[in-house]
């Protein structure tokens, strides 16, 4: 464990908490993409199956359980409890166009052709594009509540911090995983436009308005 990965995990945890608080407090999931939340649940489920047979550390196990519970809890809040506030008309990204290519690519480019390895690779590829429905929704509505933009900033920062973690581990432990690194860079690049808007607007107290 290194400071970059710890900060990244905490940023990720904070993002998930911000989202749950936002939905619970405002009793509304307006502006949130249910499609992205479904993709995140698929990502965590396919990646954390090793909870059954691999124990790495209490921290690792607890965080995986928290991420799984929070992602399914968010889906429950969005599609059941506060279903009436779900923006079904704008949340129209075809997630099958993200899941299928990630699955095909995982079968072709992987470290080993074994079930758990393929599922892990699929989850890495899918996570890199899982935020697209959310960014698509924000661009369609043209704006986002400031708490939603804080959620997105934390979520984008988590994988950006992981990139520093991979650089650190390359020099400190002479290890690297190209699949995770390439997908992590793609994932972070997708946030760049949002990061720019967040830093130039939201941090100045303005609302996040996308240029129409």
């Amino acid at each position: 464990m290194n400071i970059f990965r710890l900060l990244g995990d905490l940023s990720h945890l904070l993002a998930i908490i911000i989202l749950l608080v936002k939905i619970w407090k405002t009793r509304s999931c307006a502006g949130i993409s249910g499609k992205s939340q479904i993709l995140f649940a698929v990502v965590y489920t396919s990646r954390y199956l090793d909870l059954i047979n691999a124990f790495i550390s209490p921290y690792n196990t607890i965080m995986k359980i928290v991420f799984l519970a929070a992602s399914y809890g968010t889906i429950y809040l969005m599609y059941m409890k506060f279903k009436a506030t779900y923006d079904v008309n704008h949340d129209t990204f075809r997630i099958e166009f993200l899941i299928a290519p990630a699955a095909v690519l995982a079968l072709i480019v992987n470290h080993a052709f074994e079930p758990l390895e393929i599922l892990w690779t699929f989850s890495i590829y899918l996570e890199s594009v899982a935020i697209l429905p959310q960014l698509f929704l924000v661009s369609k509505t043209g704006e986002a509540e400031s708490i939603t933009s804080h959620y997105l900033f934390m979520l984008g920062s988590y994988r950006a911090l992981y990139i520093f973690n991979w650089i650190y581990r390359y020099y400190a432990e002479n290890h690297y995983d190209l699949i995770a690194i390439v997908a992590g860079i793609v994932q972070t690049v997708l946030y760049c436009d949002f990061f720019y808007l967040y830093i130039t607007k939201v941090l100045k107290g303005k609302k996040l308005q996308l240029p129409a």
Partner: peptide
Amino acid sequence: HQTNISKDEL
């Protein structure tokens, strides 16, 4: 072997 490294990451 490089793959075991990322399996200790979330």
